[in-house]
Structure formats: structure tokens, C-alpha cells
């Protein structure tokens, strides 16, 4: 599904933000990416989504090499990859249903959607996604009236409406309080298993990664320093990933982080 070989991503002349020798992720895997701030977690996800240009090497997603494939091919896989954000990025003045329908924009009739018209199929998919995240009762409520956890549920439903093969979640629970965070991660894991999609999520807290992922990739300074099942993530390995300043987080200490927002 995802295959990275000797990938390097650089911004300017600084040392590479990402320098990965090899990662291979199969269909239906549930992977967490952990590492300290600035380790390249977001960059990795955004590279796979096609938002970051590769400086060197190869990143193959669904059989399409992002470095060399023509635009049309990249476009085609683009809509099969859903992205979930730390800050949800919902259209705040639109209802839950409208937001979820937005996930259909790449699949439905372009011009009719501009008039706000969606097909029966679109509405069926959107509704089943809403049911899956359990927001049936708030379906016509405006997105900005929901709590943070509920908003992230809407975002998950929007991602589902896209009928993706790969779901990338960029710190999906970092702006939620711990109870909601577990709740949302549980939902994401459930949905992932049910639809058998490939899930790659960056997480800030190792204990959450241990609990909700089947495989953990540890990044540090843009390099893979750990890749294996949660059981293999010993304290020593964690120490190696985080080292020093971030040790406090190992015990599961959670702390709201200010959002990193980057526009495409």
C-alpha cells in the first residue's frame, strides 16, 4: 500500500526534515507514528498525501510513485487518501451533514455539487458515515456548536464519506482532552477495522500509540529509530526516540498543545 525507499525531504538548506531508508506498510495495517515535536511526523503524513515535494528517493502509494507519476495519476490516488487533522478543519457554519457531504466532493458530480445538490448515493454514504460515528441526533446541527470530540467525529465521518483506502490522521487527538482523545481513537480504530483501510496516525503520546496501534514507527530528527509492534517498544527504545526533554510525556502526561497549522 505504502512503500518508501531512501526518501528524503528537505526544506531549503537545513538538514533534511525527513530521511527514511525504508518503510513498507501493507493494506489494512494500523500504524502509529510517534516522536518528539519536529521529528517529521507531520511531514511524513503530508508527503504521503502528496502535499510535500520529495527531494530524493521514492514514495510509492497505492502503486503510484509520488516522485515521478504524472499529475493525473497523483490526482487519482489523492482522493482515495483521507486526512484527519488536529484542528478538525470543519466548515464551521455548515451542518454536520453538509460537512460530511463535503467528503464526497471529489467523487460526486462537480457542477451539481456547486448548487448544493448531492446524489442519492452521496447522501446514503454520508448518512451511514454519520451513523458510524454516532452523530445521528446532531445531523442538522451547525458544526461549531459541537464539542471538540464531536467535531473530530464529524471529521472522521467526512473522511469515511470519501471512501478512502488510506486514512492519515495528523495528531487527531492532540487538541482534545484525555477522555475524548481515547474515545476518538477508539472510534478511529473501530472504523479502520470495519472498513479495512490502511491507517497511519501520528500521535504525541506513546501510551496511546501502544494501545491503539498494531505497529509503531518511531521518528527522531526525520529518521526511523523504531519500527515494530507495541510489545517491542521498551522503555529503552522510548528513551531513544524521545531522549531528554520529552521524557515527561512517557508516563502519559498529556498537555494541550498549540496547533501547528500549515496551509497547503
Amino acid at each position: 500500500m505504502i512503500r518508501i525507499e531512501y526518501l528524503e525531504v528537505r526544506y531549503g538548506r537545513k538538514p533534511p526534515a525527513l530521511s527514511i531508508e525504508r518503510i513498507e506498510i501493507g493494506r489494512g495495517e494500523r500504524v502509529a507514528v510517534i516522536g518528539p515535536s519536529g521529528a517529521g511526523k507531520s511531514t511524513l503524513l503530508r508527503t504521503l498525501k502528496g502535499y510535500v515535494r520529495l527531494s530524493q528517493g521514492k514514495a510509492e502509494v497505492m502503486g503510484v510513485n509520488l516522485a515521478t507519476a504524472p499529475r493525473r495519476q497523483r490526482r487519482r490516488i489523492h482522493r482515495r487518501i483521507a486526512l484527519i487533522y488536529q484542528q478538525f478543519h470543519l466548515a464551521r457554519r455548515l451542518s454536520v451533514l453538509q460537512n460530511v457531504l463535503c467528503g464526497r466532493l471529489g467523487l460526486t458530480s462537480r457542477w451539481r455539487s456547486l448548487l448544493g445538490v448531492f446524489t442519492k448515493e452521496d447522501r446514503r454514504v454520508a448518512w451511514s458515515a454519520i451513523c458510524e460515528v454516532g452523530l445521528q441526533d446532531q445531523v442538522h446541527q451547525r458544526a461549531d456548536t459541537l464539542s471538540g470530540g464531536e467535531q473530530q467525529r464529524v471529521a472522521v465521518a467526512r473522511a469515511l464519506a470519501q471512501q478512502p483506502e488510506i486514512v492519515l490522521a495528523d495528531e487527531p487527538v492532540s487538541s482534545l482532552d484525555p477522555a475524548w482523545a481515547e474515545d476518538v481513537l477508539e472510534l478511529i480504530a473501530e472504523v479502520q477495522a470495519h472498513h479495512h483501510v490502511t491507517l497511519l496516525m501520528s500521535l504525541h503520546q506513546p501510551h496511546l500509540a501502544r494501545r491503539f496501534a498494531e505497529r509503531i514507527i518511531g521518528l527522531r530528527d526525520g529518521r526511523v529509530v523504531f519500527d515494530g509492534p507495541p510489545a517491542g517498544l521498551t522503555e529503552d527504545r522510548l528513551e531513544e526516540i524521545y531522549r531528554g526533554d520529552e521524557i515527561r510525556r512517557l508516563n502519559g502526561a498529556t498537555r494541550p498543545r498549540s496547533g501547528k497549522s500549515r496551509s497547503a
Partner: peptide, 8 residues
Amino acid sequence: EAMDSAGA
């Protein structure tokens, strides 16, 4: 960007 990511 979220809309873009949905293929809009």
C-alpha cells in the same frame, strides 16, 4: 485544505 484533501 481539508476540502482539497477530499478531492474537491
